[in-house]
Design a binder for these strands. Structure first.
Length: 430
RNA sequence: GUACCCGUAGUUCAAUGGCAGAACGCCGCUCUGUGGCAGCGGUCACGUGGGUUCGAUUCCCAUCGGGUACCCCA
């Protein structure tokens, strides 16, 4: 067995699974999406809120639901030296409700309109549009009453965000899953329908029949899918209040000319949802780009006074994915910059001062002072597509002048240094 | 957590059980104070660990990472 040279190198370090670096070239689109969300938040009177990235594990166990996948297997948990059980937040609605109760935010007057943006974590197998560290934007309205106008307002804001980002072809799927009065009745109805058909269901659905029968409705197994067509529909079993509520939401949406699709099988997997639930999907994408709903009992559950609320969260990575698929540019437009070039050591020494002068006058200037040759510097200017180059050499330094070269056609002239700013501004305006 | 596919330069891709190649990129030269074009040269890689073998980037196993489906969700 021939010895292969023992390699001295360490195994290369990689970012953790499902967690990605955001490189300089990615920043532009991220910044644009965040800014758009902030602008819309501002315009529609939503206030920004930030909560810690770590929360007590119990917060999500109590609210999202002990039996949900998120809590059962998707939380990054850690135990501190003080034996506190903390988790990397898997979502934000529960944390906002917690903050609302903790700081008595209801005292600031309701409705309270909040938005957020930041990283979230779920321990899952990554795939397209699904990461272990991902980013969400969310908007929430917490109010005195469960007025359907708030459901609509929150959807409106979501609509505006996607529209402003030039996304097309997305649809709002919407459903109502009732309240604590009517949902249990529907649940029983559903179980009664499925129980005799147990033999025809997939294994998962047989299990869910007892734990969470609503989930049978969005099972993707072929055999389960055919059965659900005949299954009782929840909106036929809503109580009068929930029914009227849902009807109003739809009417308000129509008033705004926001088109929606009723989806009787949309249920969503988080325990705290009540009444309205909705999702934004786009034909070309295998996943939804945003989802949300009403959560009327969540705040009460966390010890606050009953405060109905409604909101949604959208995945930034998913929005970007959708934009790319639709051919929407996610790259920045190259800003034209004046390119400064020096020749020789004497000129180099004075370069920094001249560049500072340009910047003081808010002229965007690029340079590659680390390079020696004029050729190389011009080459760089070319790559940046700079429209104008300033060339400063020994001769110019003695004469107190500078060459202004139009890089689009090669025309150039020597002007006094004192008139540099004025000349450039004229060039850029004309 | 399960299943299948995939890891070769910065990027996109080749080839091979026996010295690892192209294009683009990057750096330089032709051109010592004038870019884009062209020519020439240079630079950079077999994810990691183990096994089989005289010899492994190639075959096998494991691991890490990526993709996809399920699960679920933004």
């Amino acid at each position: 067995m021939a010895q292969k040279p023992k390699s001295q190198k360490q195994p290369p370090l990689q970012s953790p699974k499902g967690m990605h670096d955001r490189l300089p070239e990615d920043q532009y689109i991220w910044e644009k999406i965040r800014r758009t969300a902030e602008d819309i938040g501002d315009y529609y009177n939503f206030q920004r809120i930030d909560t810690p990235i770590l929360e007590q594990a119990e917060l999500f166990e109590r609210t999202v639901g002990e039996a949900t996948d998120i809590v059962e297997k998707q939380m990054f948990t850690l135990t501190t030296k003080g034996k506190e059980r903390l988790v990397l937040r898997p979502e934000n609605t529960a944390a906002i409700a917690r903050a609302f109760v903790q700081h008595s935010l209801s005292q600031r007057g309701l409705p309270l309109k909040l938005f957020y943006e930041g990283p979230f974590f779920r321990y899952e197998q990554p795939q397209a549009g699904r990461l272990r560290e991902f980013h969400q934007i969310g908007f929430e309205i917490l109010s005195m009453e469960d007025d359907p106008i708030y459901d609509t307002q929150v959807i409106l804001v979501l609509f505006r965000l996607l529209e402003t980002l030039k996304l097309k072809g997305f649809t709002v799927s919407i459903n109502s899953i009732g309240c604590k009065n009517c949902r249990p009745l529907y649940r029983k109805e559903l179980q009664a329908y499925y129980r005799p058909l147990k033999g025809e269901l997939c294994a998962d659905c047989v299990r869910r029949l007892d734990t969470n029968p609503l989930r049978l409705l969005d099972c993707k197994e072929e055999k389960c899918r055919t059965l659900k067509d005949e299954a009782p529909i929840i909106i036929d079993h809503l109580c009068t209040h929930c029914h009227a509520h849902f009807k109003s939401v739809l009417e308000y949406l129509e008033e705004l000319k926001i088109s929606y699709t009723l989806n009787h099988h949309l249920v969503r997997g988080l325990d705290y949802y009540t009444k309205t639930v909705f999702e934004i999907t786009s034909e070309s994408l295998p996943f939804s780009i945003a989802g949300g709903g009403r959560y009327d009992y969540l705040i009460e559950l966390l010890g606050g006074r009953p405060t109905p609320a409604v909101g949604w969260a959208g995945g930034i990575e998913r929005i970007i994915e959708a934009m790319k698929l639709q051919g929407i540019s996610t790259a920045p437009k190259a800003k034209p910059k004046v390119f400064f070039i020096y020749i020789g050591d004497l000129a180099k020494k004075r370069s920094l001062g001249i560049i500072e002068e340009l910047r003081r006058h808010h002229i965007d200037v690029a340079e590659s002072l680390g390079r020696e040759s004029l050729r190389a510097q011009l080459h760089n200017a070319d790559k940046l597509a700079s429209p104008l180059a300033l060339i400063f050499g020994q001769k110019e330094a003695f004469e107190e002048s500078i060459i202004v070269r139009d890089l689009t056609n090669g025309a150039q002239e020597t002007i006094p240094l004192a008139k540099m700013i004025e000349t450039i501004k004229k060039r850029f305006l004309s």
